[in-house]
Design a protein around this nucleic acid. Structure first.
Lengths: 230, 230
DNA sequence: CACTTTAAAACTGTCGACAGTTTTTACCCC
DNA sequence: GGGGTAAAAACTGTCGACAGTTTTAAAGTG
């Protein structure tokens, strides 16, 4: 699945379980480990040079992220994303993030505008280069965090990595098909920033919803056929 | 914390971990184990006559349910509910369940009406007797499930037990203070059922939101002072 | 008595092992 | 070869153990 890496240059982050979770997550989200792949504990244990205990915890964490699923007999496999999934993810984002925007708009400060503006600027640059960046997700996370709603953030985390996985997939597809980079969202982000800073909660919510739905439209339009990450 | 129970009459449900999760969850939600209580793995292990492995998994599951929280040093303790928490739970329910109602209204059938009507009838009975029943939560879960949105259901589960915990707390308080039983919601439920069956998604969403917010009003009104489950 | 300091007790993270099942693989018989 | 069968390999659930840390309790000091 990948060359042995008992413990790469990276210093042990926190504990083994979290370190492994992070590595596996990155591999799944990036498509390095493909959907459908079976993840057996003993195999992973050897690959990471660890025992099964931390592996087990990592798998549970990944299940929580919606990246893997457990079989009836508890066997683990990487989940795949169908177009239906992508729409589900999108509709959840609309519900959660428009709520987040409404709350965040109330607490918005000049500092937030500066931070977000900087982020958008960098996204613009990345888009020009046709790079896939985490800036988009980070920006949205920024808003959700600012909302200051613990359970909202928690629910959002439940789809965060699935969303990132779909982004990575779209990006790969784009490159393969030599499409033009996805810069539409940059303008859209500017509009979102505007309303967030304007301090109009309801408008912020609506604009955020429109922004996310717009991104979905664009995303689905990229797929000539049934878009399935598998 | 409670008398030894290596394995009560109940046959082993699925696996030990889930069985323990269920028992602990019930104990926490019902207030049998009070907020703030520390849950050490070795202690629980002995209490359930199990090793630490399944206990550990149970604790992780409970954390996911929002019933316990992990310390910086990974120590586990039962979470308490402040009025702010209750409002958070309510606002999440509004967001998630109004969305669920919108989706469910589209798939509503006569059979659903029958099932829900039966449920409401039983709630009425329970309310008259001043009993705490799971029927309320069950009804809402019914709608969320019917929505047929995997991630929505998942997010809802993230607050489900916290909600139930707050209900149980309110109920206890009610009994102690000898308040009249909570029957307002029964009428409110009827209205919700009506719009769900009417097949008007938008209206269903709004009505559901109002219903949940109404329940919050009522709930907070029960507390003369800062309502804290602790 | 309040305050340290020290020793004891308790916890978490991780490991390796074993039993019971499920899945594969290899084999045999038409 | 098709189809089934039986032995082999691989998995998951659970256990007990140990090391390093954190807490708690005890003892000592001014």
């Amino acid at each position: 699945m990948s060359p042995r890496k008992p413990s790469p240059p990276t210093q042990s982050r926190r504990n083994l379980a979290e370190e492994i979770t992070g590595q596996l997550r990155a591999a799944i989200v990036s498509g390095q480990i493909k959907p459908g792949t079976s993840l057996a504990e003993p195999v992973l244990a050897e690959r990471f040079g660890a025992s099964r205990a931390p592996i087990r915890e990592a798998l549970i964490a990944l299940e929580r992220d919606g990246l893997v699923e457990f079989n009836d007999r508890s066997r683990t496999r990487v989940r795949s994303l169908t177009s239906a999934d992508i729409e589900e993810i999108c509709s959840m984002r609309v519900a959660l993030e428009s709520m987040a925007a409404r709350l965040a708009a109330r607490k918005w400060t000049a500092e937030d505008t500066r931070a977000m503006d900087e982020n958008i600027r960098r996204q613009d640059r990345a888009a020009t280069l046709g790079e896939l960046s985490h800036l988009d997700v980070e920006m949205h996370e920024y808003v959700v965090r600012l909302a200051g709603h613990r359970r909202l953030l928690n629910a959002w985390r439940g789809i965060r990595w699935q969303f990132e996985m779909s982004l990575a997939y779209t990006h790969r597809l784009q490159q393969k098909l030599d499409f033009e980079p996805h810069r539409i969202t940059v303008d859209s982000h500017r509009r979102v920033l505007e309303v967030l800073a304007s301090g109009k909660p309801e408008l912020a919510a609506k604009t955020m919803a429109a922004h996310i739905e717009g991104a979905l439209e664009w995303s689905l339009a990229q797929f000539p056929v049934e878009p399935v990450v598998a």
